Simulated scan of single mutants.
Amino acid sequence: MNYINEAIGDLKTYGQKHSEDYKTADPFPSIYFDNFFNPDVLHSVLDEFPDMSKKPDLQFNDPNQIKLASKGEGRFGERTKLFMHYLNSQPFLEFLTELTGIENLIPDPFYDGGGCHQIQPGGMLKLHADFNKHPKTKLDRRINVLVYLNEDWDESYGGHFELWDTEMKGARKRILPLFNRMAMFSTTSNSYHGHPNPLTCPPDRSRKSLALYYYTNGRPVEEQEVSDADHNTIFKYRAEDKKARALTSLKETAKLWIPPILIGGRHKEKAG
């Protein structure tokens, strides 16, 4: 099966052609492509996109995020599984290397944090820098790839993927999540990005995407200087996000003072 749009041609050559645009992008190395994939393939993936709305373990709902996300590939349909495996294959990895200049990329067969993502009306994901080490392999996270699956997506629906400067003064790039649009960027401890505004699409619509992450064994010294320590997701707040910041701070303070056994008991009671 041909996963790539025939108009793209040779993947390695295409990566070389756009490499300078990627490396010099503002506010950090990034790019997006339209009509990159065979649309028939993406339609087949969309047709089997999993319903995660009734699965508590796939729901994230806190001041920083309201979203749904799969875990592993257990909920992938057969065509989705083949497509995701292709994005972890040699030809696509070589394309990423030519585009980004990052060599010896390693895909994530666990899809830890990746996979199928969905945001329903009112949902959002505040601005953040991603975790920098794979939880299992401890490899360094280097590239994010996002494939959007939203047909007939109107600008008024929102859902823009935003890339922000390190001073958090404003979005330097806003990308509408259109069908067959692929966005990618280099993942560092200050590559702040997200979907910070609540989604305003009609109630029968949602923002769907596929997320894949790529790793290396080690990272450049200049990236280590930003943050050499392992860290989870680092949320950053705009002036209008003061409420989320206050609630997050309160939650973290509670963790310091409430005995772990009580927190664990609360979680168990909620799950029951």
Rank of each mutant, 00 (worst) to 15 (best):
R141C: 13
A171E: 10
H128I: 10
W153N: 01
Q118D: 15
G114N: 05
C116M: 09
K138A: 12
G159T: 05
M168N: 04
Y157M: 06
L163H: 08
D130W: 00
V145L: 02
L125H: 07
L125P: 03
I143F: 03
Y111L: 12
N132W: 07
K169N: 15
L163M: 07
L127S: 11
D140T: 00
L127C: 09
M124F: 14
V145H: 01
D165S: 09
C116H: 10
D130K: 00
W153R: 11
Y157D: 13
F110T: 13
G123P: 07
Q120H: 15
L149S: 07
H134C: 04
E151T: 11
F110P: 08
T137M: 05
V147N: 12
P121V: 00
A171N: 04
Q120F: 15
G170N: 05
K133N: 09
C116F: 11
M124H: 15
Q120Y: 15
D140M: 06
G158H: 02
N132A: 07
W164E: 02
G115W: 03
E151A: 01
R141L: 12
D140K: 11
P135M: 03
Q120P: 05
C116L: 12
G122F: 01
K138R: 14
G114Q: 01
F131P: 07
W153G: 00
